[in-house]
């Protein structure tokens, strides 16, 4: 069970945003996408979400072509957290999180909403915010609320074996270091529980600490992919970012 990307390319106005990308996100692992701005990372995530179709190549979720999966079915098998837009009307935090609780197809555990909400609110430390208005929260708090909503979308009773994927675009942006650590730990726990995670990050040290695999993107191309210990190489990293980098092995820290 995996998301399989088979040589996809994406062009806008003859400009190549992504060139011949192939990779795989397996259940139970965290694949981290790294690369400078404009490398095509977010576009890759949007293609996987199904927001639009690649110019060529195919995407498979558990060996089923993404094009053949309905919009609603997709919402059951993957949950996406991307850059969020402003919310105009005064919804409460609880209402925003509840939007992740999908209406149909939940028949088998429709009565578990309160249990799921309590569990996730606790894990994402938004419990005290539930009755606040979403719009009065700080940027970091809003991020945590969206994370809670994203998790609620993929919540299943503990005996479930549904294959589920999380696609995250810089989920830790705006978070303080405590909540960044908590969120990354939560993502790690989710992966350990069998969920497949693709995450875009900018902090390579965070990536090194939490990912099972990293993929380095530059100019729309996949430069390298593999476990962090193999991929992170002073020369290659310096070339990718155009910035001299140094790797200390003990304790592990990449400086620049």
């Amino acid at each position: 069970m995996s998301i399989k990307i088979s040589s996809i390319s994406y062009q806008i106005n003859n400009k190549n945003i992504l060139k011949d990308i192939s990779l795989e996100v397996e259940l139970g692992e965290i694949l981290c996408i790294l690369g400078p701005n404009g490398a095509g990372k977010s576009t890759l995530l949007k293609l996987l979400s199904g927001d639009f179709k690649p110019s060529s190549g195919e995407i498979y979720f558990d060996d089923k072509n993404l094009n053949e999966i309905s919009i609603q079915e997709r919402s059951f098998m993957r949950s996406v957290m991307a850059q969020s837009q402003a919310i105009v009307f005064d919804f409460s935090v609880k209402e925003i999180i509840e939007m992740g609780w999908l209406d149909k197809g939940l028949a088998s555990y429709a009565d578990k909403f309160q249990e799921a909400l309590d569990e996730i609110a606790e894990e994402t430390s938004v419990k005290d915010l539930l009755n606040e208005k979403f719009n009065v929260l700080s940027g970091g708090e809003q991020r945590r609320v969206h994370f809670a909503r994203t998790l609620l979308q993929t919540w299943r009773p503990s005996n479930s074996t549904d294959p589920i994927y999380l696609l995250l675009d810089e989920p830790t942006a705006n978070l303080d270091i405590l909540h960044e650590k908590k969120m990354m730990q939560k993502i790690k726990d989710k992966a350990a529980g069998g969920i497949g995670v693709m995450i875009i990050l900018h902090d390579i040290n965070v990536a090194a600490k939490y990912s099972d695999k990293v993929a380095i993107f530059k100019d729309g191309e996949l430069k390298d992919i593999g476990p962090p210990s193999k991929v992170f190489d002073e020369e290659k990293l310096s070339a990718t970012y155009g910035l001299p980098m140094k790797i200390n092995r003990n304790p592990y820290l990449i400086t620049y």
């Binding site: 609603q72 969020s84 009307f89 209402e95």
Partner: peptide, 20 residues
């Protein structure tokens, strides 16, 4: 009405939550 609620998150978000 429920779909309009989800749309408040933005069009791509509503789509990712299964709304046409």
């Amino acid at each position: 009405s429920r779909k309009l609620d989800l749309l408040q998150l933005g069009e791509p978000e509503a789509y990712r939550l299964g709304i046409d």
